[in-house]
């Protein structure tokens, strides 16, 4: 039971928020609450399960011990997962941001799309092929702090 709670709270948001698929506001709210609670809930579940396993360990036979290990391992995995942002594995925000003048650019084609922002005479292009991976780039254009997102 404890294991099921621990796993559910971690897996449900991952299932509800899949990239490239539509999401409903309700699913997002449920996921948000679960993501907020999962780090603490999984720790408590892990400790509780560990205590139970230790307590039963001496009394149980080999298959009981094997069962306890099999059940506990996924819970530990979930506990670790609750502390990760798996979206950042899939779509890493740009961490080493740099820019090139247009005439030196050789990493995109002429007919590739760019997101373009021009403010107070400053013009910036964010190639879609890079944005489709990073999704978020923070910048200051013409004095305005912006987040470019795709």
């Amino acid at each position: 039971m404890i294991v099921v709670i621990g796993l559910t709270i971690v897996i449900t948001p991952i299932w509800l928020i899949q990239p490239f698929q539509p999401q409903t506001p309700r699913a997002l709210e449920v996921s948000y609450v679960m993501r907020r609670m999962s780090p603490i809930v999984t720790i408590i579940a892990s400790i509780a399960v560990l205590l139970v396993v230790v307590w039963l360990w001496r009394k149980s036979r080999w298959f009981g011990k094997a069962f306890a290990v099999l059940v506990t391992l996924p819970l530990f995995a979930a506990t670790w997962m609750a502390r990760q942002n798996h979206f950042e594995w899939m779509f890493r925000p740009d961490v080493n941001i740099s820019y090139a003048p247009p005439d030196t650019v050789n990493y995109i084609n002429d007919d590739d799309m760019v997101l373009s922002v021009t403010r107070s005479g400053e013009a910036v292009a964010y190639p879609v092929r890079l944005m489709a991976y990073h999704h978020l780039v923070q910048d200051v254009v013409g004095g305005t702090p912006i987040v470019a997102t795709y």
Partner: peptide, 26 residues
């Protein structure tokens, strides 16, 4: 913020002195 999505070629012609996001080397 007003922005648009155009081809790189079009953007270069309009903004020869602009700057272009580079790929993250890592």
């Amino acid at each position: 913020v007003l922005h648009d999505e155009i081809t790189f070629k079009m953007w270069k012609q309009e903004q020869p002195r602009g700057r272009v996001l580079k790929p993250d080397p890592t």
